[in-house]
Nucleic acid binder design. Sequence first.
DNA 1: AATATCTTTACCGAATCTTTACCCTTTTCT
DNA 2: AGAAAAGGGTAAAGATTCGGTAAAGATATT
Lengths: 218, 218
Amino acid sequence: MGKTIAVVDDDVYIGNLLEELLTGEGYRVLRAYSGTEAALLLEKETADLVLLDLMLPGLSGEELLPRLQGTPVIVLSAKAASSDKVRLLTGGAADYVTKPFDSAELLARVAARLRDSGRKSAVLSRGSLRLDTVSRQLTAAGEPVHLTRTEYAILKLLLENAGRVVAKSLILEGIFEDTPDCTESSLKIHVSNLRKKLREADGQEHIEAVWGIGFRLT
Amino acid sequence: MGKTIAVVDDDVYIGNLLEELLTGEGYRVLRAYSGTEAALLLEKETADLVLLDLMLPGLSGEELLPRLQGTPVIVLSAKAASSDKVRLLTGGAADYVTKPFDSAELLARVAARLRDSGRKSAVLSRGSLRLDTVSRQLTAAGEPVHLTRTEYAILKLLLENAGRVVAKSLILEGIFEDTPDCTESSLKIHVSNLRKKLREADGQEHIEAVWGIGFRLT
DNA sequence: AATATCTTTACCGAATCTTTACCCTTTTCT
DNA sequence: AGAAAAGGGTAAAGATTCGGTAAAGATATT
């Protein structure tokens, strides 16, 4: 499970410190000592997170930032000015930590950023609904609700796409593994049963039909 | 498509300040003044982000935090101690900002957190029209407008070619998948209905006929 | 084998959408 | 100008889809 973190800093001392800190936490660390090297490195290897110093030879951290779309970046810098922070956070940085930094706080921020990038959080929630995908248990406004396999599969799919319209055909595909024989006509019964259970639990209507298309979880 | 942010703070002055700041940026703001109120509020309404003060009556911010799994939380606190930051960031907070905070930096951090929780909502917009092609929802001058399948297909096509003339035959082709039997005669009814709905929503005329050819969205 | 649980089929009324039919008005062409 | 063709729109008929109940069929459990 060891995530990979790229440390981009030309200061060898700080770089080593970071590497020790991170490997000590079980992360795999990639090193780069210039902006250009980082660019090359990240074309070959995939990192889950980048710790980026701003003042770098070759390509500055600020220039590198826009090229790292998709990977969360924590900017490390001695510049404490609010305007710098704003510019970089707006420019795509996931976080901004000023040097000198506190080791424990940095690690916590690293963990926080990794957490929401790999947001396969075991719990899907929306409004009053909380679906634990590990124990497969649902609560609606605190009330536990028992779900059948098919209902669970449908609700999970809807929760994963909360707010979006999910086409009926897409649902059927998505739950095929659990319920191969489900057709559009039986799907609507499952939805109906699901609605009933949710309604009895928290009194709300969650699943909305989009005429001719499918369903949406509001 | 303004994101919704919940401001949880018992200090009315700070809360108002935050609300002004956020609404000024186009966010929709929900307020709660105690931990328990926040818990209730967030069961009813769904927020995209929560700004959470730590010292709250009822349920403290720290106690509330674990219940907000799934929604990113920025903790606001006067406590600057590294140990506090670490505990909260580890405990599920997405970010930690110490009071007094810099407005611009806070906004930047809000945007950063929203960005990576951000669902890729592909929005087609033109003038006062905004069509979210993921949720299939249209707003005209802020007003939500309900569209039927065919109307949605037509409007989407027109928006994708906003300003250009789209031939009737091309529209019929484009919406064939949704409405195979649509002919030129029924097309004009759909256009008529569409115009009516838009007119009722924002009072403007958007769809212009190009004689003998087709339609254009202005 | 009997029982409980889940899934599917059958069916109905209600709601929603699409099309047809039929007005009138505007534009184009002779 | 006058006829033919196209646009704009209303109202009602026709076709789908929805939401739900009840019961039959399938699957798992004891």
